[in-house]
Design a protein around this nucleic acid. Sequence first.
DNA 1: AGAATCTCGGACAACAGTTATCCGAATTTG
DNA 2: CAAATTCGGATAACTGTTGTCCGAGATTCT
Lengths: 157, 157
Amino acid sequence: MKMSGGVEWGLHCCVVLSGAGAPVTAAKLAELHDVSQSYLAKQLQLLSRAGLVRSTLGQSGGYVLTRAANEITVLDVVEAIDGVQPAFRCTEVRQRGPMAVPAERCDTPCPIARTMDSADRVWRESLRRVTIADLIADVNRTTPPEILAGAREWLRA
Amino acid sequence: MKMSGGVEWGLHCCVVLSGAGAPVTAAKLAELHDVSQSYLAKQLQLLSRAGLVRSTLGQSGGYVLTRAANEITVLDVVEAIDGVQPAFRCTEVRQRGPMAVPAERCDTPCPIARTMDSADRVWRESLRRVTIADLIADVNRTTPPEILAGAREWLRA
DNA sequence: AGAATCTCGGACAACAGTTATCCGAATTTG
DNA sequence: CAAATTCGGATAACTGTTGTCCGAGATTCT
């Protein structure tokens, strides 16, 4: 089981985008993080399609967050890039084979599926509790101030 | 993000194995669940390697659980088949690019990684709370008794 | 005791989904 | 009108999952 690597990039981009007042191009975001420019563009498209960022076209275009940082949760980004489909999918094994349970007797979902769904819910709930603003606060607290100022300046140039 | 489909099979097998008093062959388990025999064998091997089941060779061999059903958690099966590696892996993006944070200043893990790890922990904790015995109790409550008896008889034959 | 029979176990291919890349079309700014 | 920029799809490489096979090992019957 593996989450798409683009989730990490997307979260970093949201943090950076929140700090910059002006639109930032995909190329700049890719260079800042030292990741593939073409592939990051794809992830940004997913964020855009989910309505988390807005892209402005033209010469001085780029990406901007559509809401305040404390209105965007980590779960929003995860679901935008990795999808909303839960990791476990019940294939209704009990309805197959020589001892199959007829479909009309399966009113309640399989206990295995219920267990997995419950775990999936608490996982998502945990991610929903953390916002981009929380991440920013943590970053501001743990990274050297000169680097923060340097990045801000580098983005402007 | 997608969990291995073998997890579902493995859990069903554990439930069946707990009900049968004698060893059950991989072929019988595959036929009962109507899944690929060769591939199910692979999943059973993983369970065996993790110490959840014990295989006995020879003419009347098969698989047996090594512990009582209430001593095996769903998480045990998930980790045996799907692996223990968390879905999110931090690639230390902050240490890359023109504004990289030097490694010696990164004493605390990235806040993004901490958020993901926390969610992963509650997910695993949720799965750890449910045992095979719980699943069996649920199955016994929700499936028609004649089918349960039929399956028990079918296994014996 | 020996041989047949049946089992598990690991090695070996096919498939799918993810990762990564590129280029043309559409759009805004200067 | 020209330059710069984003968006979307089409396309290749790659990793991991899915699926299949045959050999090694053990038990049972004669």
